[in-house]
Amino acid sequence: MDALKKCLEVEHISKTFYNNKGYFTAIDDVSFDVHEGEFLVLLGPGHCGKTVLLNILAGLEEKSGGRVLYKGQEINGVNEEMSMVFQLLSLMPFKTVMENVELPLKFRGMDKKQRREVAQHYIDLVGLTGFENAYPHQLSGGMKQRVGIARAYSVHPEILIMDEPFGQLDAQTRYLMQQEILRIWQEEKRTVIFVTNNIEEACYLGDRIILLSSCPATVKEIFDMSALAKPRDIVSREFLEIRSKISDQTDLSM
């Protein structure tokens, strides 16, 4: 089965922070595989070290132990094959939508004309045609997140990391963006690692769900969701059954 080819192997990752008051373990021995082309969801309670884990995968944060393999090769630091949608939208307020989407391509030295074309393609894909020259402050929360998604897609990454991208959105926009992200994922097949603390969102989107425990983060259980076809009906019996199964296993964060 092609879909089960491993594209990223996370082995025994741990992360401990030290400060003058002592130390704090955010991640404790987390291991999992990411399969090529899948939509993998990391589900965990708030403040359980999910963002730290993603930052380690993206090369923004040093790990205290373990290793990350990309297609069998150990990687350290920033990897060109990965791209990220940030939890805080992190759009440059001083750049237009077009300039924001183009920025990663500019960093990679693509010439201006080509850059425009690629960026336009992804702006169209996320449904922001006509807003190319708008500044982020002129956009709604959902539109800003679309820019973040277009920016992450623009570099043709093998793996897209999304860190609670819809956490700041209101419920209505959130549902809409969940449908949108599935549509985009189906149009531009990429491996996605999607982090959330919302069980329903995890069940709606994930091919597999990796359930993380509360602090320090460890892998509690892995759920295979491939039996449920997408788009999923969130009030169907199967959906609700698996949802309550996961919810029984989940640590409360508060």
Binding site: A58, G59, L60, V78, E80, S83, M84, F86, L88, S90, M92, P93, F94, K95, L103, P104, K106, F107, R108, V155
Partner: peptide, 25 residues
Amino acid sequence: KQYTDVARAFGASRFQMLKEVVLPS
């Protein structure tokens, strides 16, 4: 930090970081 993080994650060089992120912000 969120802006410099974005630039780092997308592989900006030190000069690109200066020109595209630090100067305008």
